[in-house]
């Protein structure tokens, strides 16, 4: 029977769902691990974090392209499809209160929280777009785009001084980390890597340990950054960052770019 009404989404449901699973791990999951680890380098000292940011920004004009191709678009794809997927389910933990069923519910809840957090967080720090008119005219007046790459620790830290903001970050970190750790476990079933209940139980313990470690890294990053941005240390750290900037410009590592500083 000819069925012209079957949508693109329906015809390719299998491949699209596998792509959803894949994007959750590569690149998004990998990004989250690196992002939290790099942010946590601020506890060691602010220069370590600043060096890492210089490294990222050495991509120069390519950076927005890399950001969109490897981070923003995969997150948008995974997130929008994730919302469609969660709308297609009907949680029933009330009648079937099993651990895996709660995790099914939590996977959806944390996905939603992570999605809302990322939207706000990227606006708050990064501003979403790099266009000058957007940053100056819209993002900054609305309290976004607070991060200055060449004043990395001080500006990120200053943006995290408010207690409510810190709480929202903590929720965002924990939701994202649970979603990744549990997603790693389900993805192994989706792709058929761990099949027996025994293997699934063992791997769950591994995923839980991974999640706890990543949550600890993320939480220390948050409080480390908060510490770096405190008013007592802010000036000192900006001084360190200014020296690093001047040396780099002198060495010719970077061109002077005031918009990444103020």
């Amino acid at each position: 029977m000819n069925q012209p009404t079957v949508s693109f989404l329906a015809r390719h449901e299998f491949l699209i769902r596998r792509l959803h699973s894949l994007t959750g791990i590569v690149p998004i999951g990998v990004f989250l691990c690196i992002h939290l680890a790099v942010n946590a380098s601020v506890i060691e000292d602010v220069t370590a974090f600043q060096k890492a940011v210089y490294q990222i920004h050495s991509l120069g004009g390519l950076l927005p392209f890399v950001e969109w191709a490897l981070i923003f678009l995969p997150i948008l794809f995974h997130g929008i499809l994730g919302v469609l997927i969660l709308l297609g389910g009907s949680s029933n933990t009330g009648d079937y209160p099993y651990a895996e069923n709660y995790r099914y519910l939590l996977q959806r809840a944390t996905g939603l929280i992570a999605g809302l957090f990322i939207l706000w967080h990227v606006f708050h720090m990064h501003g979403w777009f790099h266009f000058r008119w957007w940053i100056d005219g819209i993002a900054a007046p609305l309290g976004g785009a607070l991060f200055r790459p060449f004043h990395a620790a001080s500006t990120a830290g200053a943006a995290l001084q408010n207690g409510y903001v810190t709480t929202l970050y903590l929720i965002g970190i924990l939701a994202s980390v649970f979603h990744l750790a549990n997603g790693l476990w389900t993805a192994g079933i989706t792709w058929g890597i761990w099949t027996s209940p025994n293997a699934q139980k063992k791997i769950w313990r591994f995923c839980a340990a991974f999640g706890i470690i990543l949550a600890a890294i993320g939480t220390s990053a948050l409080f480390g950054m908060r510490h770096a941005g405190k008013s007592e240390t802010f000036e000192t750290i900006q001084g360190i960052e200014n020296r690093m900037y001047e040396i780099r410009v002198e060495l010719g590592d970077i061109r002077s770019s005031e918009d990444k500083r103020s």
């Binding site: 079957v6 329906a10 015809r11 449901e13 299998f14 769902r17 596998r18 997927i85 297609g88 389910g89 029933n92 079937y96 099993y98 895996e100 069923n101 995790r103 099914y104 996977q107 389900t186 079933i189 989706t190 209940p197």
Partner: peptide
């Protein structure tokens, strides 16, 4: 199993095996 409504719809809640 890979057609529309196939295995990809499973969300790994694992209620099936429990009941």
């Amino acid at each position: 199993l890979m057609a529309e409504g196939g295995i990809q719809v499973c969300g790994n809640a694992q209620n099936c095996v429990a009941v």
